[in-house]
Simulated scan of single mutants.
Amino acid sequence: MMELTLIGIGTGNPAHLTLQAIRAINAQDLILIPRKGAGKDDLAELRHVICDEVLTNEATRIVEFDLPVRDEQTANYRQRVNDWHDAIADAWKAAMAEHPQAARVALLVWGDPSLYDSTLRIAARLDPAPGVHVIPGITSLQALTAAHAIPINDIGAPFLVTTGRRLRDEGWPAGADTLAVMLDGGCAFTDIDPKGVHIWWGAYVGMAEEIICEGPLAEVSDPIVQMRAEARQRHGWIMDIYILRRR
């Protein structure tokens, strides 16, 4: 039976790799690297950089494959995501089928496979089901708090991890004064009442391109929107995350 290993690689900085991740990379027959289309070549290149730095097993093959594009026309969000995950699973199977001799296959996953990442859900769609192993990685949330040198929660207080879409559509969730917001392509922090809210924002955290900004939301909201737009234009892609706290 094929073994599939999902290796958390942090935010693209090779220094984020754990010893467990390095050993796992070198134990593979095949490493699959997705290509995400024009303007996002850096994402595949960063995975190659990581392999160049830590891969010493000459028998390990590195193979790129094209990642399907999500259909944004279907009205139902969950249906769009489910269809997309089906297509990605098919792309994995096609790539693996070209290398039937590979018994140990790995994917390098941004951050950690368990936090706002669907790699495990996609792996569950493979038939026949492989044996799945997970190597945890540094998450963008950890990289953000490290970049700002802050704890994520007040003493004894909870925090809530959510998405930009939910913050925009549903407002500030009840029961938490601190929010960690991920997957926000639309700057949902601009849709909430900024009074008494502090933000810690970062893009490309942990990488050479890292940009961070923090302050009262009312004062830094517009500058963050501008920095984000300029960085996306410059690199062709952006990965950002932020923490909001009501004072």
Rank of each mutant, 00 (worst) to 15 (best):
W200K: 03
E210S: 13
A143W: 03
D86M: 10
G12P: 06
V134Y: 03
L167E: 02
I7M: 01
C187Y: 11
P68W: 01
K93F: 06
R23P: 02
L32Y: 03
A91T: 04
R80T: 08
T18G: 03
R47E: 02
P194L: 10
I7T: 02
I31P: 00
I50M: 01
V205K: 00
R166V: 08
L43C: 02
H99C: 13
F159S: 04
P151S: 15
A106C: 09
R61F: 03
R35H: 07
Y77F: 14
D29K: 09
L43V: 07
T119M: 06
P194T: 12
K195E: 15
A208W: 09
R232T: 12
L167A: 05
G196H: 06
T162G: 02
E170A: 08
P173W: 03
Q101T: 14
L32D: 01
E64L: 06
T11Y: 07
M96H: 02
R61E: 05
R104T: 05
L183F: 06
M1P: 10
V81P: 00
V54S: 04
P151I: 05
T56S: 13
G8W: 00
A231H: 01
G137H: 06
A229T: 12
G171D: 07
Y204P: 06
A44E: 01
L144E: 04
Q79S: 13
I62N: 04
M2I: 14
T56A: 07
T190Q: 10
M239L: 15
E3T: 15
G196Q: 10
V132K: 05
W172I: 10
K36T: 13
F65A: 00
I7H: 05
P130G: 11
G37I: 02
E58N: 10
G156M: 11
Q226S: 07
K40H: 07
D117F: 01
V49L: 11
L6C: 06
S118F: 02
D191I: 08
Q79H: 13
A129E: 02
I152F: 05
G137L: 04
D90L: 07
I241R: 02
